[in-house]
Amino acid sequence: NQASVVANQLIPINTALALVMMRSEVVTPVGIPAEDIPRLVSMQVNRAVPLGTTLMPDMVKGYA
């Protein structure tokens, strides 16, 4: 199964993503693939992302 990017902490709106904020986990539904974690670093989220939430492409500015 494909691992997705999951929030490792609460990520406030407009926060630039850092490695420590993300982990990979096999979840349903599938979100952003875990292999894209390096690409996500320094991109901003466009909403608050609670701990344990799967990151979806529409949550990250400039990802989709």
Results as ranks from 00 to 15, higher is better:
Pro50Met: 08
Pro33Gln: 07
Pro33Cys: 06
Ser4Gln: 02
Pro38His: 08
Ser42Phe: 09
Thr28Pro: 02
Pro50Ser: 10
Gly52Arg: 04
Val27Cys: 05
Pro50Lys: 09
Met59Pro: 02
Asn46Trp: 05
Tyr63Gln: 03
Asp36Arg: 07
Val45Asp: 01
Glu35Ala: 09
Ser24Thr: 12
Ile13Ser: 14
Asn14Trp: 14
Ala64Thr: 11
Met22Thr: 00
Gly52Phe: 04
Met21Ala: 04
Gly31Cys: 03
Asn8Lys: 08
Val20Cys: 13
Val6Pro: 01
Val5Glu: 00
Thr54His: 02
Asp36Gln: 11
Ser4Ala: 03
Val27Gly: 03
Ala34Gly: 13
Thr54Asn: 02
Asp58His: 09
Val26Lys: 05
Gln2Tyr: 11
Met56Ala: 08
Arg39Leu: 14
Ile13Leu: 08
Ala48Ser: 14
Thr15Glu: 07
Ser42His: 14
Ile13Thr: 11
Ala16Arg: 10
Val45Asn: 01
Ser24Pro: 14
Lys61Gln: 11
Thr28His: 10
Val49Asn: 02
Thr28Asp: 15
Thr15Gln: 09
Pro57Lys: 10
Thr53Cys: 07
Asp58Phe: 11
Asn46Glu: 07
Gly62Lys: 05
Gln44Asn: 11
Thr28Lys: 06
Ile11Tyr: 00
Ala34Val: 09
Met21Ile: 03
Ile13Phe: 10
Ala34Leu: 03
Val41Asn: 04
Leu55Asn: 02
Val49Pro: 01
Thr54Ser: 04
Met59Gly: 03
Ile32Leu: 05
Val49Ile: 15
Asp58Cys: 15
Pro33Gly: 07
Val45Thr: 13
Ile32His: 01
Val27Ala: 06
Gly31Val: 02
Ala18Tyr: 05
Ala64Cys: 08
Leu55Trp: 00
Met43Tyr: 09
Leu10Ala: 13
Ala64Val: 14
Leu55Tyr: 00
Asp36Trp: 07
Glu25Trp: 05
Ala7Leu: 03
Asn14Cys: 15
Val6Ser: 00
Asn8Thr: 13
Ala48Leu: 11
Ser4Cys: 04
Val27Asn: 03
Lys61Pro: 09
Asn1Lys: 06
Val20Gln: 14
Leu10Cys: 15
Ala7Val: 08
Pro38Phe: 10
Arg23Lys: 10
Leu10Gln: 13
Ile32Cys: 04
Val5Asp: 02
Gly52Ile: 03
Asn46Arg: 10
Leu10His: 15
Ala34Pro: 07
Val41His: 04
Ala3Leu: 12
Met56Glu: 07
Asp58Arg: 06
Val60Pro: 01
Ala34Thr: 07
Met21Asp: 07
Thr28Glu: 15
Met43Asn: 04
Val6Cys: 04
Gln44Glu: 12
Gly62His: 10
Val49His: 01
Pro29Met: 04
Met56Tyr: 07
Val20Asp: 13
Met56Gly: 04
Gln44Met: 15
Pro33Trp: 09
Val27Tyr: 02
Pro12Ile: 05
Asn14Gly: 10
Met59Arg: 01
Pro50Asp: 09
Leu55Cys: 03
Thr28Tyr: 14
Ser24His: 13
Pro57Val: 08
Ile13Gln: 14
Asn14Leu: 07
Met21Cys: 03
Ala64Gly: 10
Val5Arg: 00
Pro29Phe: 03
Pro57Glu: 08
Ser42Gln: 10
Val60Arg: 00
Val5Trp: 02
Leu19Cys: 08
Val41Asp: 03
Leu51Val: 15
Arg23Pro: 03
Ala16Thr: 10
Asn14Met: 10
Val45His: 00
Ala48Asp: 12
Ser42Tyr: 11
Gln44Ala: 14
Leu40Asp: 00
Leu40Ile: 08
Gly31Thr: 02
Gln9Asp: 09
Leu51Ile: 14
Ile11Met: 03
Arg47Lys: 09
Pro38Cys: 05
Gly52Leu: 04
Asn8Asp: 14
Val6Glu: 01
Ile32Trp: 02
Glu25Thr: 08
Ala34Met: 08
Glu25Val: 07
Leu17Pro: 03
Val26Pro: 08
Ile11Trp: 02
Pro38Glu: 10
Arg39Gly: 06
Ile13Asp: 11
Gly31Tyr: 03
Met59Asn: 04
Gln2Met: 12
Tyr63Gly: 03
Asp36Glu: 15
Ser24Asn: 06
Leu40His: 01
Ser42Ala: 11
Val27Thr: 13
Ala7Thr: 14
Val41Cys: 06
Arg23Val: 08
Val5His: 02
Leu40Arg: 00
Ala16Leu: 13
Gly52Glu: 04
Thr15Trp: 06
Arg47Pro: 02
Lys61Thr: 13
Met22Pro: 01
Met56Ser: 06
Pro57Gln: 09
Asn1Gln: 15
Val26Ile: 13
Met22Ala: 02
Pro38Trp: 07
Ser24Cys: 08
Gly31His: 02
Val60Cys: 03
Gly31Asn: 01
Leu17Arg: 00
Ser42Ile: 03
Ser42Leu: 09
Ala64Glu: 11
Lys61Arg: 14
Ile37Arg: 07
Arg23Met: 06
Lys61Met: 12
Gln9His: 08
Ala16Trp: 11
Thr28Leu: 08
Val26Arg: 04
Gly52Ser: 06
Gln2Pro: 15
Val49Glu: 02
Pro57His: 12
Val45Gly: 02
Ala64Tyr: 06
Met21Val: 03
Asn14Ala: 08
Gly62Ser: 11
Asn46Ser: 12
Ala3Asp: 09
Pro12Val: 06
Ile37His: 01
Gly52Asn: 14
Ile11Gly: 00
Ile37Ser: 04
Ala18Cys: 15
Val30Leu: 15
Pro50Ala: 14
Thr53Ile: 10
Lys61Tyr: 09
Pro38Thr: 10
Val6Ile: 13
Leu17Asn: 02
Arg47Gln: 14
Pro29Val: 07
Val41Tyr: 05
Glu35Val: 09
Gly62Met: 08
Gly62Asn: 11
Pro33Leu: 09
Ala18Ser: 14
Ala48Phe: 10
Thr54Gly: 01
Leu17Trp: 02
Asp36Tyr: 12
Val20Glu: 14
Gln2Asp: 15
Pro57Phe: 06
Ser24Arg: 09
Met21His: 13
Gln2Leu: 15
Leu10Met: 10
Gly31Met: 02
Ala3Trp: 11
Val49Thr: 04
Asn14Gln: 11
Val30Cys: 05
Leu17Gly: 03
Asn8Leu: 06
Leu55Val: 11
Ile11Glu: 00
Val6Trp: 00
Leu40Lys: 01
Val45Glu: 02
Val26Tyr: 10
Val41Phe: 04
Ile37Leu: 13
Val20Ala: 15
Val30Ser: 13
Glu35Thr: 09
Met22Cys: 03
Leu55Ser: 02
Ala3Asn: 09
Gln44Trp: 09
Leu51Phe: 15
Val41Trp: 00
Val27His: 03
Met59Leu: 05
Arg47His: 10
Ala3Glu: 14
Ala48Lys: 11
Met22Val: 07
Leu17His: 00
Val5Lys: 00
Leu51His: 12
Pro12Asn: 08
Val45Cys: 05
Arg23Ala: 07
Thr28Gly: 05
Val45Trp: 00
Val49Phe: 03
